[in-house]
């Protein structure tokens, strides 16, 4: 068991050569000029204290206020082959399944057609013309 008194009492710290000869001159020069010794350190601590939080706020602001990319832009980024593969794998609709699910009577279908056509703004002539053109 080692005791404190077993350790030789000695300072392990060193100072640069001539430090204590120079120190009174440095201190008195500072007293006269009123300057701080470490302007670099002060500038550094100032920048760490204020500039870093401001920079962080700016970066956060850029992300926060960045406009959402439009659907067209998002689609442009996707490869056509990937879209085709996706549709092939997910968009298969079984017609029999549809018929089983939609079991409307003919009068219900007529009502639905009437509702669709009554909401259209097209005059009948325009509609006919458009349908004809599409059929060509």
């Amino acid at each position: 068991m080692r005791k404190l008194e077993d350790i030789p009492k000695k300072s392990i710290f060193k100072v640069p050569e001539g430090y204590f000869d120079q120190l009174p001159i440095t201190v008195q020069a500072r007293m006269v000029s009123g300057s701080r010794r470490s302007p670099v350190k002060t500038a550094m601590s100032f920048s760490l204290k204020y500039a870093l939080p401001v920079a962080a706020l700016i970066v956060a602001g850029i992300f926060w206020f960045r406009p959402e990319p439009s659907l067209e832009n998002q689609l442009e980024d996707i490869d056509t082959e990937q879209i085709a593969l996706y549709l092939e794998s997910t968009d298969r609709v079984d017609l029999e399944e549809v018929h089983e699910t939609i079991d409307w009577t003919s009068s219900e279908i007529d009502d639905l057609e009437d509702a669709v056509y009554s909401n259209m703004d097209y005059p009948n002539e325009d509609l006919l013309e458009e349908l004809d053109l599409e059929n060509l």
Binding site: S11, F13, V15, P16, F20, P24, T26, R37, S38
Partner: peptide, 27 residues
Amino acid sequence: QQRVYWHVRKMVIDHDDADDITQEVFI
């Protein structure tokens, strides 16, 4: 100066920090 410096140095360990603080003490 020596008594102040060594008193400070033993607390802050680093010479540059001790030098800064010693100067500040005398100011």
